[in-house]
Simulated assay, not measured.
Amino acid sequence: MDAIDRANGLLEHYAALARAELPRDARVFDAHTHLGEDIDGMTGDRDELLAIQRAYGIDRSFVFCLDEPDRRPAFTAANDRTLAHAAATTTELLPFVRLDLDESPVEEATRCIDLGARGIKLHPRAQRFLPDDPRLEPVFALAAERRIPILIHGGRGLPPIADSLARLLDRHCPPALIVAHAGIVDLAAMAENFAGRPGVFFDTSVWSPLDLLDLYRLVPPEQVVYASDYPYGRQPNSLLMAVRTARASGLDDAQLRALLHDTSARIADGLDPVTPGAPQGATELSHPVTFLRIHQYLTMASAMLWLRHTSDTYGVVGLAINACDARSNGYHAETEQIRELLVATRDLWDLASQTEDERDRRRAQRGAFRLVHLASVLAVTTPG
């Protein structure tokens, strides 16, 4: 219990820090959240999501189902649950319909739009298709006709998709296309095709702050929208990472307010996009070696926790803790912050290895993952 209490205390501390680093009177719109139960075991709970949103000043979010066990046929049951969740909250949750191209996608999209869906969610990795699939043509045509946005997975698990997605968008142009996970699957080509193109946006739901620094380098801030990817992305990690990387890339308060809220609100409200300016992130990163070492070890630890390793068999958290030694790095206060997170991570991971109940073990592992991620964000975004 000491390990759990210490971890919860740290999360509360960084929650206050994340809220403090927002621009004054800033509002937040989360462009990427899930509710339901995924076949991978992850669960998004409506009451938990609403509690998170209210705690962090998130007044609206786009929400869609996960890759549910009862997804067949056509995600109908899961989409109905999403619509019911949104109806129960009036304005806080804006429902998107999730589609499977194998099972009546246009019919299911039309049914849900008529019932109040505000957009379409596409997941080419989970549903096994690519943007050059001819079955996407009528889906994009419907979105253009009904004037609703599309959000498409742009993260891990795909081959390059930017060029074929651009050709599809040239033929059928919905009012907004949001590329999830900062388009990291094909970021350079995404930027080449879409940077400066009104109506195409990238959400911030990634693990690595380095991905966001690269996104701001390549894409105008007017084309970036805040997103958490709840329940995979959690607070305070998500907001803290988005804000700190934006600040490091030179975004001012007005640009940050737009990224956090206004751009997504315009999409939700059917308004025309703001004309994009120019990217403004730095092309080079100069950073103390100490923090780079820490980040390297934490990347390794994160992968192990994501894959549910029961213990730190490689000792990478210990290496990261030792790298925080202020005798050689000259950043005592900064590395002590990181060390505190990592000691709590080590203890929580040890607790997980000693826990027999599967649910409790996974909860401890997820808590350790959140702490590792916070430490990684600090390692990358703490000024040298």
Rank of each mutant, 00 (worst) to 15 (best):
D2K: 13
I4R: 14
R6Y: 12
A7D: 14
N8R: 15
L11P: 01
A15R: 08
A15K: 04
R19I: 08
R27C: 13
A31D: 06
H32T: 09
T33N: 15
G36P: 15
E37N: 14
T43H: 15
E48Y: 15
L49F: 12
Q53N: 11
G57R: 10
R60M: 09
F64K: 02
R71M: 08
P73D: 08
T76P: 00
A77D: 09
A78L: 06
E92N: 06
V97A: 07
R98T: 08
L99S: 06
R111N: 10
L115T: 00
G116N: 09
P124G: 00
Q127L: 11
R128C: 07
L136M: 13
P138N: 04
A143R: 02
R147A: 03
P149T: 10
G155R: 07
G157R: 05
L158Y: 12
P160T: 05
A162M: 05
A162C: 01
P174C: 10
A176M: 10
A176K: 13
I178C: 07
I184H: 01
V185R: 03
N193T: 00
N193I: 03
R197Q: 01
F201I: 03
F202E: 06
D203K: 06
D203E: 07
P209Y: 12
L212W: 11
D214A: 04
L215P: 00
Y216C: 05
Q223V: 04
V224F: 10
V225Q: 01
V225D: 04
V225I: 09
A227L: 05
L240M: 10
M241D: 00
A242D: 02
T245I: 06
T245H: 11
R247A: 02
D252H: 07
D252Q: 09
A254K: 04
L256E: 04
A258D: 15
D269A: 04
P273E: 04
G281E: 00
F291L: 15
T299Q: 15
S302P: 05
L305I: 03
D312Y: 07
T313M: 14
G318F: 13
L319I: 09
N322S: 15
C324W: 11
R327F: 09
A333T: 09
A333H: 14
I338W: 06
L342W: 04
L342E: 03
V343G: 03
T345Q: 00
D347Q: 00
D347P: 00
A352Y: 01
E356K: 03
D357H: 06
E358S: 04
R363E: 11
Q365W: 08
A375G: 13
L378P: 05
P383G: 07
